[in-house]
């Protein structure tokens, strides 16, 4: 059954991808990208990677469509015609694709217990997680504790990406004025549409509640800071769509958002430094409390909070930067 799902979803994925590339109508491409992301998330889910699927769901279903439409508002509706026949590019792509397909013949079969990935450190993680960290979701244990360095790197990549996007979108204005919209039209937002406004407003608290659940339930089920941050940002973006972007910026002002971007990443770093000051290794949370297992859990909760704050801040900064650029031109 898994194979049937996977084959179906992957072939749909290929068809959608080809259609996105071939479409010159950019709005249609944005809509198809939404479908692409849904297919991708379903595929992750079928392969039992629920944490990844939740991230893809949170980012792909809501936020990426909003950001793509924000970009589309700044540019033309149709792709400009290509410069010439795609001869060389086609050959390079085909050779690359053939190489990758050839390489997959050496890949171990799906779910093969003898594959190197299942032989190297994974058994150790599975064995030691209940004893050392005491939480049921091994993914969270690996992400938050065993491989906390990698996650720290990811958070700083997200941080750097936000700075890059803000820098580009600020254009000729100073970066400090990225968010200041010039005389935004008063009819922005969907506040004149009764049904979306009422239904949306009813849903916003539940989205926040669910985001907090995902944030703090990550030790037991799929979830964690990245997913919760994306869900939280989706809730705020929904508010911005309903009542206008300016009102959302009043509720969560620009200095706060920028502080969240930097503060979340710094909170993560700080936990690592505190571990060192208490005599442990960098990001070795066992020293945070008298009981080593409780220290690990405390450390994971703190760094997940840092990740959640940073991701919320980054996504909202990018959203507001697009919106401000849109109304500024």
């Amino acid at each position: 059954m898994t194979i049937l799902f996977a084959v179906f979803l992957l072939s749909m994925l290929v068809i959608t991808a080809v259609a996105i590339v071939r479409s010159s109508d950019l709005f249609a491409a944005v809509m198809l990208l939404g479908i692409f992301s849904l297919l991708m998330a379903a595929n992750f889910f079928v392969l039992d990677a629920a944490d990844v699927a939740l991230t893809e769901a949170a980012v792909g279903a809501g936020i990426s469509t909003v950001l793509f439409l924000g970009a589309l508002a700044l540019t033309a509706a149709r792709e400009r015609s290509r410069l010439g026949p795609p001869g060389l590019a086609l050959v390079v792509s085909l050779v690359m694709a053939a190489t990758v397909v050839y390489a997959t013949f050496d890949k171990p079969a799906l779910g093969d217990p003898n594959a190197p990935v299942h032989q190297h450190v994974a058994p150790w993680y599975l064995e030691q997680t209940p004893e050392l960290i005491g939480i049921p979701n091994v993914v969270t244990a690996v992400l938050g504790s065993f491989r906390a360095y990698d996650t720290l790197g990811e958070v700083f990549v997200v941080f750097a990406a936000a700075i890059g996007v803000l820098f580009i979108l600020s254009g000729d204005r100073p970066v400090s004025q990225v968010f200041r919209p010039k005389d935004a039209p008063s009819t922005r937002g969907l506040k004149h549409h009764l049904i979306p406004r009422i239904v949306g407003k009813l849903l916003i608290p539940f989205i926040f509640l669910f985001a907090l659940y995902v944030q703090f339930h990550g030790e037991y089920g799929p979830g964690g800071g990245f997913q919760a941050g994306a869900l939280m940002a989706a809730g705020v973006i929904l508010y911005a769509l309903l009542v206008g972007e300016g009102r959302a910026l009043e509720a969560l002002p620009e200095p706060l958002l920028k502080g969240m971007v930097a503060g979340g990443a710094l909170l993560y770093l700080l936990v690592g430094v505190v571990c060192m000051l208490l005599g442990g290794n960098f990001l070795d949370y066992s020293v945070l409390a008298a009981d080593a297992v409780f220290g690990q859990q405390l450390g994971i909760i703190l760094i997940e909070a840092g990740v959640g704050i940073a991701v919320t801040g980054v996504l909202l900064c990018i959203f507001h930067a697009f919106a401000a650029r849109d109304s500024g031109i």
Partner: peptide
């Protein structure tokens, strides 16, 4: 949980499309 997350935020994209056309 995953289905819940989808059900909650799936329509944000459609609202964004509405807002895009209105603007």
């Amino acid at each position: 949980d995953l289905a819940l997350a989808y059900a909650l935020i799936n329509f944000i994209g459609v609202l964004a499309v509405l807002e895009f056309f209105q603007t």
